[in-house]
Nucleic acid binder design. Structure first.
Lengths: 249, 249
DNA sequence: TGACTTATATGTACAGTGCATATATCGTAA
DNA sequence: TTACGATATATGCACTGTACATATAAGTCA
């Protein structure tokens, strides 16, 4: 394209944009979808709700909702988190925005996805409210990314709605990367915990075994764990000390 | 809230969502904004366009545009990148979605931001098309995040539109973090380059000096640089070998 | 030709990690 | 009561990657 033609095209584009009133034309719908993650018995779990309507009726979807016209994105995500899963004040962070045309067959929906990290104990009893905790089977090593499958308690693969499997996969990729430099593991544990419990959480997220001694030293050297002086009990072996997360050593 | 009340509220929410037709109600406008970054003379630069209309008339804004109803987000970003900056096939990745109510005083606009990395030579002459390359002054160390200022050639601080300074700041935070584990520096260089040039790019992005020997060994050990056997010339000292980026060693 | 500048190569100290070993402290069962 | 199994905790050592220092190579320019 010649410079002259390019400039002409630029002027046309600029004129278009300046006269463009975004409230006047049809534009995509905006939703938030939440990947609520937890770790229980060394397994990474994700909260899903069953779709009762077409399309994708009977499949399992991420909890989500539409963003109201004057509602912030973080606020919409927090609202969905409380309404669908009864959680407040937990770790919640924006993940990625999915907006391919056709990802929702009904209409154009752009979804801003968030991921939340919740202590498993706080999600007890949610099955009575229609929320299922699916087990994540991650098919790749490291932080490269790839496919995930969601399994039920018996190990059967659950069908997922729309592109929600992609969203879940990206959340796993994100927390695997984040685990290396940010203290997020404790978000999935009670207020006090043993180093072994923290290591189990890391192993569940990373999908690999971690050297125990190195992990201990690394965590203690980071200066973000504070010994409480208390110990676990009734464990059939020497009890481990309980630690608490602290921002500054 | 009691469980009974909670369940009742859930049912109401569910009924609302099932009857909700997103095409029927007003919802936010959707835009993309691009942080086009380059490095020239050891400085990190960002492409900005002057706002000719109110609000924020006369301030400098990121190139952006509205997302068409059936246009993908990546496609919209690529369209803006080509229309506003004449670039195709360069590194372009989604950054974050900004959607606070009030970020645009006219109407509710949710902006999916992208960042692009472009070799400075490809951005020559864009000032004739109204694009200014602002110098970034980053006020924090490491990957923690914080404020950025945009300066013109004389070092004067440029006023930025809306929340675009926040978007730029997040892009800097992102590439600083990404530089540690992903080969993105070469995106800002010609096809062949010296190790010194690559180091200059890294230093401009990180805002710190890097030990030269360690940097050399680290880059060569990563196995993603291939020696071309050719050398720079007319540099007033011993010429350095030119390298090429390669995905696998 | 020699001074100057930067590239490239090599050596050393130090920090972080993986691995092995030794000791401590619980529950449990003979 | 005691022996045993299990895991926690502490310490030492080898290996690796990085920061820093030193030495040599190869250009330009006065």
């Amino acid at each position: 394209m010649s410079d002259e033609k390019q400039r002409s095209r630029d002027r046309a584009e600029q004129a278009f944009l300046e006269s463009y009133d975004p409230t006047q034309f049809e534009h995509p719908s905006l939703a938030v979808d939440l990947v609520i993650l937890t770790v229980r018995d060394g397994e990474l779990l994700v909260a899903l709700v069953r779709r009762d309507e077409h399309p994708d009726k009977g499949t399992w979807a991420l909890p989500g909702g539409f963003v109201a016209v004057h509602e912030g994105l973080d606020a919409a995500a927090a609202r969905v988190l409380e309404t669908k899963a009864g959680q407040r004040g937990v770790f919640l962070e924006q993940l990625y925005t999915f907006g391919e045309p056709g990802r929702d067959p009904r209409t154009r929906v752009v979804s801003v996805s968030y991921y939340a990290l919740v202590n498993a104990a706080r999600l007890e009893g949610l099955d009575e409210r229609g929320v299922l905790l699916g087990r994540l089977r991650v098919s790749w090593k490291g932080e490269s990314g790839g496919r995930v499958d969601v399994l039920d308690d018996s190990g059967r693969k659950l069908p997922t709605a729309f592109d929600h499997a992609d969203i879940i996969a990206m959340s796993v990729k994100r927390i695997r990367g984040k685990l290396d430099y940010a203290p997020i593991g404790f978000q999935l544990l009670p207020a006090t915990f043993t180093l072994r419990a923290l290591q189990n959480v890391h192993e569940a997220i990373l999908g690999t075994d971690i050297n125990k001694d190195s992990f201990r030293r690394r965590m203690l050297a980071a200066g973000q764990l504070k010994a409480t002086g208390k110990y676990e009990s009734a464990v059939g072996h020497r009890p481990a000390e309980l630690y608490r997360f602290t921002r500054r050593s």
